[in-house]
Amino acid sequence: MEKSLKIAIKELNFFYRDFKALTDVSLDVYAHEVTAFIGPSGCGKSTLLRCLNRMNDLISYIRIKGSIFLDDQNIYDPGMDVVSLRRRIGMVFQKPNPFPKSVFENVAYGLRVNGIKDKAYIAQQVETSLKAAALWDEVKDRIHESALGLSGGQQQRLCIARAMAVQPDVLLMDEPCSALDPIATQKIEELIHKLKKTYTIIIVTHNMQQAARVSDITAFFYLGKLIETDETDAIFTRPKLKQTEDYITGRFG
C-alpha cells in the first residue's frame, strides 16, 4: 500500500517563556499508521503532541517557530481556523476526562457543538462511536447515566469514543493508559490496533513495550530533540544511535 503523508513537522522550535522545550524537530507522520513518541519524562513529547492540535495556544507565555503541515496546510498559518482544526484532530488525554454529563451526552457533545441537530443521526453516531471504542456492550444499559460512574478504563474508552464521534482524521493520544490497570490497558491497545484502519494515530508513551506492541513508527526524543525515528521493529532491534539503544534497553540515567 502506498504511504501517504498526513502530517509534516518542519523545523519546529518551541519555548515556554525562555525555556526551550523543543529544538529543530522535523518529522513526517503517515496516514493509517500508528506513530509512537517515546523518551524520558520531560523530553517534550506532550509539548509536541499538543502543538499538533494547537492546544498549547491556551498557554499565554509560549512561542513557536517552524511549521506543521496537515494535508499540505500549515496549521500555524495566521488564517488557520483552530476550531475546525481541532475537530479534524482528535485528542485523548493522559487522565480520562469525561464531562460531568451522561455517557450519551459526552459522545454527542462534539456533534452538538458542531451544529448537528438531527436526533436520529446523533443517536446513531453515538452508538457507532461507542461500538468502535468497544464500549457499547458495557454501557448500553446505562447510557443516560453519568459518565463519572464508569471505571477508569471505561472512562478512557469513552473519551476515545467521544473523540471519534466527530470523525477526525487524526487521533492524538497522550499516555492514554498511564492511569489504567493492565487489563484496561490491553483493551485500549487492541482498540488502537483496530482504529488505525480509519485514523492516523499518534501515541505518546513512556512504556516501551507498549510502543513496540502498538506502533508502526517510533520516534525517540531526548531533551527536546528528536534523536531517532524509524520503523518500530527497527528501532527496537537495531537502533542506529547509542542514545536510543541506551534508552530502550533501560540503561538510561
Binding site: M55, V83, R86, R87, R88, N97, N114, C159
Partner: peptide, 23 residues
C-alpha cells in the same frame, strides 16, 4: 473548573464560547 474539561471540549472542536456555555 479543571483545565482537563476545558481542553477536552476544545479538542473536540468546540469554540471557546461553546466550551464556556456547555462545560
Amino acid at each position: 473548573v479543571p483545565t482537563e474539561l476545558k481542553e477536552a471540549s476544545l479538542a473536540l472542536g468546540a469554540t471557546h464560547w461553546e466550551t464556556i456555555a456547555r462545560v
